[in-house]
């Protein structure tokens, strides 16, 4: 197992280098320039030229590439041109912010998705099953950004107009002033801020999980060992949650890792709409500002997460399914 993991990790290295090389050349060859935001009638072109020189942007592209590669291989991501601080400092912050968001929405995805899937499978062809199927399809087919807009419209904006008891925050990670309150208040505030973005991010995927779960559950329920369990006189609850669920979860668990790239893509839109300072909004801003080092670094981290996600799903598969471990 460990040998297999090592092999996979080593195999990922050329893959990551390839991604970074492609991104490097795409963003450097594209029009636009990190100094563009300084353009104004008060700033002379010579100053702009000097800025480009200070940033090393006046060198030939292949030299820039080699330089960047060298510092990257020594673990130095450099300075962000837009934020003016070391990327090694920015990255943990935004990564942690995005992880909070993705982890909460992963919980939503699996809890909600699996529950719905189980209900549907257990009551196959019932009214509840059909309604939930249609609902799941509806959420699955919905554009994330549109759903996010509707959520913030209803639960943040209209809620305050209509005088609802709870108005959910729709922007940022914290309310101003909470930092002077206690630890509990900060945690509660953070969770409140997480509700809307995590829901927007997770709901479509949860609908997908529900579809899988229903299929997997149905397959398991009709197998002999479930019939045996029932025949033994076990309660329906035990049969479903202990025997059936455990087996039906195998294919679902492996999805965990595969949903990561999905969630990261979605996070781009959701973080932009809810002003969540994570990887997604950072990468979009970096692209727009032509913040080359930051684009490279975020691309790298995203690619690493995706590779790790794939690996994770393989490992989980081995953990939950003994047949694979034996091989």
């Amino acid at each position: 197992m460990i040998g297999y993991l090592l092999r996979r990790m080593l195999g990922a290295i050329p893959l990551l280098l390839g991604i970074l090389t492609i991104i490097f050349f795409i963003i450097h060859l594209a029009p636009g320039d990190p100094t563009a935001r300084f353009f104004s009638p008060q700033v002379s072109p010579e100053v702009i030229e000097q800025m480009r020189h200070n940033l090393g942007l006046d060198q030939p592209l292949h030299i820039q590439y080699l330089k960047w590669m060298k510092s990257f291989l020594t673990g130095d991501f450099g300075y962000s041109l837009g934020q003016g601080r070391p990327i090694s400092e920015i990255m943990p912050e935004v990564l942690w912010n995005t992880l909070q968001l993705t982890l909460v929405s992963l919980v939503i995805i699996f809890v909600v998705g699996m529950l719905i899937g189980i209900v549907q499978a257990v009551r196959q062809y019932s009214v509840a099953d059909n309604v939930l199927t249609v609902l799941a399809l509806f959420f699955y087919s919905m554009p994330t950004f549109w759903f996010a807009l509707m959520l913030s419209l209803i639960f943040a904006l209209k809620a305050s107009q209509w005088g609802w008891p709870v108005v959910l925050p729709s922007s940022g990670m914290a309310t101003v002033g909470t930092e002077w309150l206690g630890r509990g208040a900060i945690l509660r505030d953070r969770l409140l801020h997480l509700i809307l973005p995590a829901t927007a991010l997770g709901i479509g995927t949860a609908a997908g999980v529900a579809r899988y779960m229903r299929g997997a559950m149905l397959e398991v329920i009709h197998q002999d060992f479930i019939r045996t369990a029932r025949a033994k006189g076990l309660s329906e609850r035990t049969v479903i949650f202990k025997h059936a669920l455990r087996n039906a979860m195998i294919p679902i668990i492996t999805l965990l890792g595969l949903y990561l790239p999905f969630l990261l893509s979605g996070a781009v839109l959701v973080e932009t709409i809810f002003a969540w300072p994570g990887m997604g909004s950072t990468v979009v801003n970096a692209i727009f500002q032509r913040d080359y080092p930051l684009v490279m670094a975020t691309s790298f981290v995203i690619a690493v997460i995706v590779v790790l996600g794939n690996l994770l799903s393989d490992v989980l598969y081995a953990v939950v399914d003994p047949r694979i471990r034996a091989e």
Binding site: P14, L15, L16, G18, I19, I23, I26, I27, A30, P31, G32, P261, F262, L264, S265, G266, V268, L269, V283, V284, I287, F288, V295, S299, I302, A303, V306, V307, N310
Partner: peptide, 23 residues
């Protein structure tokens, strides 16, 4: 297949934004 894996290892939306925003 290595190339395919590489393309798969990148969230599509991010890749699209990079390319379209730049051109």
């Amino acid at each position: 297949m290595r190339f395919t894996d590489m393309m798969l290892s990148f969230p599509r939306l991010v890749l699209l934004i990079v390319v379209i925003a730049l051109f």
